[in-house]
Each structure stands twice: as C-alpha cells, then as structure tokens.
C-alpha cells in the first residue's frame, strides 16, 4: 500500500475525473430522458419505438462506441468528450425506459383529477405527474449512476478512464497495489454515490415514506 500513499495526488486527480466522466452523463441523460419519456408515454406506437430504440442503444459495445464516436462527432480520438457522450448515450438508454415506465405508473385518476382542477398539460406534467414519478425515476437513476461509474473504466483504452487508468497502468507496470486500489475505489465511489442518491430521494419524497409506513401499518 506504499504505492497508494506515494501517489495520493495522482489518485485524487483520477477520482475527480472519474466523478465528472461518470456523473455528468447521468445528469445530461436524465434531462434528455424526461421529455423523451414523456413523449414516449403520450403516443401508443411511439412508446414502443422510443423505448426499443433506447434499449438498442444500450446493446452497442462500449469499446466500439469509444472508437466510433470521434468519427461521428468529429472530435479527436483522444478527447474526453467522447467518454462523456458515450456514457450519456448509455444513461439515456436506461433512463428513457425508466421515465416512460414511471409516468405510465401514475394512476390515471390522478391525471384526471389534475386536469379537472384546471391544470393545462405542461403545468400538470411538472406539478403532478413528474413529482409523483420521482420514486421510480430515482430508482432508475441509481442504476444508471452505478453502471456509469463502472463503465467509465472502459474509457481507459483511450486514456480517459478515470480510476480505470489504475487498472491499465497497474497491469502494464505490474503494480498490484495500484490495480487493487483502483478496484476498491471504484466500488467505494459507486456505494457512496448510490447512498447519496438514496438520501436525496428520501428528502425529495417525504410523502412516499408516509405512504409506505401507512401500508406497513395496515398489513401488520
């Protein structure tokens, strides 16, 4: 573990890269997934198309995407934007489906009540449908975030793998401590981010906990 204490600065830099490379795509993916999921949920046939297209995106091998993206985007092969865009594609693929499912699960009677109260469609979406969907969407965001944190490491093949650099570097230079530290840090980061998202979810949805407590009380 000597290696670790001697390279703290290097590790810290990789960690901050890793956080940016993994979480910025989740945020962008979510922002894009909300309107797309809404659109998917409105149109019957459109839904199948959008959700399946999104699913298809997820099947593209990440390695291929890293190599292919510079051609499409006109970026240099060694540009961190490639990593961000690739992971955004994956986050989006996961989250479009989540958002569409979450919105579909909003009880029709609620949408009906909101309409009858005098909500116009956009305001109704923002004030009723979206907030009610938060618990389901947040569960999807947790999956997307953890998967994104793990996928960043693949970026190390083009030199932007965040903590993944510690695997390639450690293997090439035969430093076991570096490889192990890399793995531990990636797992730890995933756990911390997941825990934080769980906390954010609790703060955002006190009503959901109240509902759960009541249901448990009723079944007990």
């Amino acid at each position: 573990m000597n290696w670790v204490s001697q390279n703290l600065g290097f590790i810290a830099g990789l960690l901050s890269d890793h956080i940016v490379f993994s979480l910025v795509p989740v945020v962008i993916g979510l922002v894009l997934a909300i309107p797309l999921g809404w659109l998917a949920n409105r149109a019957g046939v459109g839904r199948t198309v959008v959700v399946n297209l999104a699913g298809l995106l997820y099947t593209i091998p990440s390695l291929a995407l890293f190599v292919f993206l510079p051609v499409v985007l006109g970026t240099g092969i060694l540009d961190p934007v490639n990593v961000i865009v690739a992971l955004t594609v994956y986050s989006l693929a996961l989250l479009v489906r989540t958002v569409a499912d979450a919105l579909e699960a909003v009880p029709p009677v609620l949408v009906d009540a909101a309409t009858a109260m005098g909500y116009a469609p956009v305001r109704r979406f923002l004030a009723v449908e979206l907030p009610v969907s938060v618990p389901v969407i947040l569960a999807g965001v947790r999956v997307a975030a953890v998967s994104s944190i793990s996928l960043v490491t693949v970026g190390s093949v083009i030199g932007f793998g965040g903590l993944g650099q510690m695997f390639t570097d450690g293997f090439q230079r035969d430093i076991t401590a570096e490889v192990v530290a890399g793995i531990v840090l990636v797992v730890a980061l995933a756990l911390v981010v997941d825990g934080l998202l769980l906390l954010v979810g609790r703060l955002l949805t006190p009503w959901d906990r109240a509902a759960r407590a009541t249901r448990q009380g009723a079944t007990a």
Partner: peptide, 18 residues
Amino acid sequence: ELRRGIGYVIQQAGLFPH
C-alpha cells in the same frame, strides 16, 4: 380556465399523494 371555475369531486378522491 373553465375547469378552475367548476369544482370536481371524483370517486377515489384523486388526491395528490405528494
């Protein structure tokens, strides 16, 4: 606008859970 001027009560109350 019309609906804001007409009260509406539905079967399962349809309250906003959040």
